[in-house]
């Protein structure tokens, strides 16, 4: 089972990702923890501890609305670690949609992006079962300060100097 790095510790990742609507309708969403496509959730946007939204990496920024702030959990699934769209999507969720819940990075990101992911608003990271999480925790803290504003520090360094 994959692991979830969160708040400086590691736990088991219990969520299941349902990537299409057919899978959503075929599943009893009360039977576990599910991440479902944005449109399926928007069809019945009720707050729930056990249902979150899964966002593909090619989600269009226009699709991200303020309604998302009612959610407790959102996961953005990276394809390749070279595809940096997820960094901007996360930023939009945090800054424009006022989403304040758990934002999971899932899929093909890599360890050495953890610090940047954290800065862009991710606060939970889905990693493989055999991942060296101690080493990952080190990467999460690669830097202790930054020049620019981001979701973890809204003031750029020049306003704090």
């Amino acid at each position: 089972m994959p692991k979830l790095i969160k708040n400086g510790t590691t736990e088991a990742f219990h969520w299941q990702i349902l990537r299409d609507s057919d899978a959503v309708s075929a599943t009893d969403l009360n039977s576990g923890q599910y991440l479902i496509p944005l449109n399926d959730w928007l069809a019945a946007p009720t707050p729930s501890r056990n249902v979150g939204v899964w966002l593909a990496i090619d989600t269009q920024p226009e699709e991200l609305t303020k309604a998302l702030k009612n959610l407790e959990t959102i996961a953005i699934e990276f394809g390749s670690f070279m595809d940096g769209r997820g960094f901007s999507l996360a930023h939009i969720l945090r800054e424009d949609c006022d989403f304040s819940g758990e934002l999971q990075a899932a899929g093909g990101f890599m360890q050495d992006q953890l610090f940047y992911l954290k800065r862009c608003g991710f606060n939970a990271f889905v990693v493989p079962d055999d991942a060296d999480t101690d080493s990952m925790l080190v990467s999460l803290g690669d830097f202790s300060d930054s020049y620019q504003a981001a979701c973890d520090e809204p003031r750029p360094l020049f306003r704090r100097r």
Binding site: Q113, Y116, R119
Partner: peptide, 9 residues
């Protein structure tokens, strides 16, 4: 420098 959002353009 180390802009977190634009390192994988």
């Amino acid at each position: 420098t180390f802009h977190p959002e634009y390192a994988f353009l």
